Amino acid sequence: MSQSRGTEDGGHRREWTPAPAAGSAGEATSPPEGHWTDPATLLGEGEEDFGLRPRSLDEFVGQRRAVENLRVALQAAKGRGESPDHLLLAGPPGLGKTSLARILAAELGTHLHATSGPALERPKDLVGILTQLQRGDLLFIDEIHRVPAGVEEYLYGAMEDFRVEFTLNEGPHARVIPLTVERFTLVGATTREGLLSSPFRARFGLLERLDPYPTEDLVRILERSARLLGVELEPDAATLLASRARGTPRVANRFLRRVRDLGQVRQERRLSATLADETMTRIGVDAHGLEELDRRILHVLARNGSTPIGLKTLAAAVGEAEDTIEDVFEPHLLRLGFLHRTARGRVATADGCRAIGVEPDTQAPGSGGTASP
């Protein structure tokens, strides 16, 4: 049976009772097919994922510079009785952009209206949202770099003058209707800041870039999540999970839930490093935090030796979308030094080859040879 209890963390603590043993049926099953780090997976796990989110800036772990800058901006805006400047949050998925938007609305005591760039297909979609905003509300647009150019033009006027000129009908019967909107704060989140046009980016008074979390911050996040989930997480287990979570809190929390599942089936309330390591093996995540697609990417590059492979060719070889490789998988491989990007394409480094058990090419970057020009 599951229970919910209030905690000092401001959330609800979920506790579980170990399930009875069921012989061979008691073994944990493999997770559904899909990447642990792909955009669809990183959307979260519903109510439980939401319950692990921090509720205030004081609860938010990591991103110290960004949090302190936002704290100052909020206090100053409250002191003046105004809305904060428009805010752009940039960084890879799963680092807390949506959580920060929710926290800002909570700190200001206003409503958060959330949408996404792809959902704003036509100007009327945006105008419909803008006309619903009350004074001081926050409008959160996820993947804001995917807002169509025609809709973006309407945002310019709304952000600067808090008015839009909506065109009704077309041709000789067209009419321009000026609409005034309440003063609001736009919070945009993007994983591809470079795709934003310069005029659009310049209209944000605040810009904060979120970086992957160090292991010690992820350990603190996992310890808090374990308390909320009602499990006991050993320090070594927390460190193991944090070191394989690719610097991403959402990935770390997903790993923790999978270890909890295995512990519940095994009737082990205390989650040990051994249990955590077995869970990682079951879901195919190695000591470097690499999953199956990471290893496939490195294998394709390693087979080509020191000759770079273009992104389109690499995507076709591993059967994954170019954007997913570039936005989700490449950053981690680059941070580990397992992959190099050149003007001609991608190439696996000597360390990357060794990570998958392949003898590196003597001309591969980092192997002591000279890479091809």
Rank of each mutant, 00 (worst) to 15 (best):
Q264A: 15
L112W: 02
R227D: 10
E234G: 14
L87D: 00
L334K: 09
V151W: 13
S225L: 11
G230R: 04
T131Q: 12
A202T: 12
R55M: 04
P235V: 10
T190R: 09
G81R: 03
A364C: 06
S272K: 02
A252L: 08
L290P: 08
E82G: 11
A242K: 12
H86L: 00
R254G: 14
I144D: 01
I309Y: 02
E268P: 07
L74M: 02
P31S: 10
A226H: 08
N169C: 11
T17H: 14
P308S: 08
E322M: 15
V300M: 08
A90Q: 09
T313M: 13
L139K: 03
Q264M: 13
P373H: 12
R146S: 06
D327I: 15
T279H: 07
T110N: 03
P84F: 03
H12W: 14
G128F: 02
D327G: 10
H332N: 04
T180D: 06
T215N: 07
P373R: 14
R282V: 08
A273Q: 01
H35Y: 13
D125F: 06
D286Q: 00
K124C: 10
G357E: 01
R270K: 13
G117Q: 08
A149N: 10
V328K: 03
D217R: 10
S4W: 15
H86A: 06
N253I: 10
R209N: 07
G91R: 08
L241M: 07
S272N: 08
R71G: 04
Y154V: 04
L196F: 02
A25D: 14
G96S: 02
P93C: 03
P178I: 07
V72D: 05
L241Q: 01
P148I: 04
R354F: 01
T349I: 05
I221H: 03
Y156S: 04
V300W: 08
L89W: 08
A252G: 05
I297P: 12
G96L: 12
G136Q: 04
D125G: 03
R65K: 13
G368A: 03
V347Y: 00
R250W: 10
R244Y: 05
S83W: 03
I129N: 01
I356R: 12
T274G: 15
E182D: 12
L333R: 09
A273W: 02
E45Q: 15
L195T: 06
T248F: 10
L196K: 03
P39L: 11
V187S: 03
E15I: 15
S225H: 09
E320N: 11
S272R: 00
A76C: 06
E320K: 09
P249Q: 00
F60S: 05
G96K: 11
G345T: 01
P32R: 02
G337E: 00
